[in-house]
Amino acid sequence: MVAVLLGPAAWADQRPERVVSVNLCTDQLGLLLADSGQLISVSRLAHEPDSSAMVEAARALPANGSGAEEVYLLTPDLVLAGTFTDSATVQMLRDLGIRVELFAPARSLEDVPARLRQMGAALGRTAVAEEMVARFEADLAALTVTLTPRPRAALYYVNSYTSGDRSLASDILAVAGFDNVASEVGLDWGGVLPLEKLVMLAPDLIIQGRDYPGQARAEDTLDHPALLALSDTLQAGQLTDRDWICGTPQVLNAIRAMRDLRLSMEADR
């Protein structure tokens, strides 16, 4: 009764004990920071090895389908969701009196400490979060590549989509010592980079999006002969995997892989 009268402010002091996550990235932040037994369910995607960077830890918990009905029946006292989670679901849960904490997707490496702190505060685990932030920042500093010249890299996904400078993927490239060619054609936020334009940019390196199961014609452009005809371009293959998706300390794995690639290019020169 007191909690109802005081509104959201009162929740901060009360540590949630039954936490349900309905978003792939909040699943991982939750798994990293929650006390044992605090997180009781993760989203279904967390159990998919292609998407989830923490699949072993996630499989210890039951998965939910992220629908309001299913989540409510788990009787949570906190639901972790993304800002892109269906707003009808979020509203429904809030109307039912459940606290829902929303996490925006990370658009840069700076968002990683911010999300860790937000999750720490939501779970009442701020000390653990601060510890993890300190470790993340130290690791990040140790991995940063300062070699010059910086090779011009292109991120190339299905349907000719690319990520621009204002994206987590582009930050991963930058820390590993690469420049993103998308900014040369004004795609700061990312968008469609037509095959012809990509070829004309003649990047030093093309990094492709991950391979999805099954077939789609939309994936044809990824192995178009025109890309192979660029003699000075290194085809790095499919590198952007599950470690690139979420703003968690897992991105350090992605940075490590890109850093190894950058150092191997240096060795070949």
Binding site: V158, N159, Y212, P213, G214, Q215, A216, A218, E219
Partner: peptide
């Protein structure tokens, strides 16, 4: 199809 882009095809 299990491929998320197949529907766009």
């Amino acid at each position: 199809s299990p491929n998320p882009f197949a529907a766009a095809d």
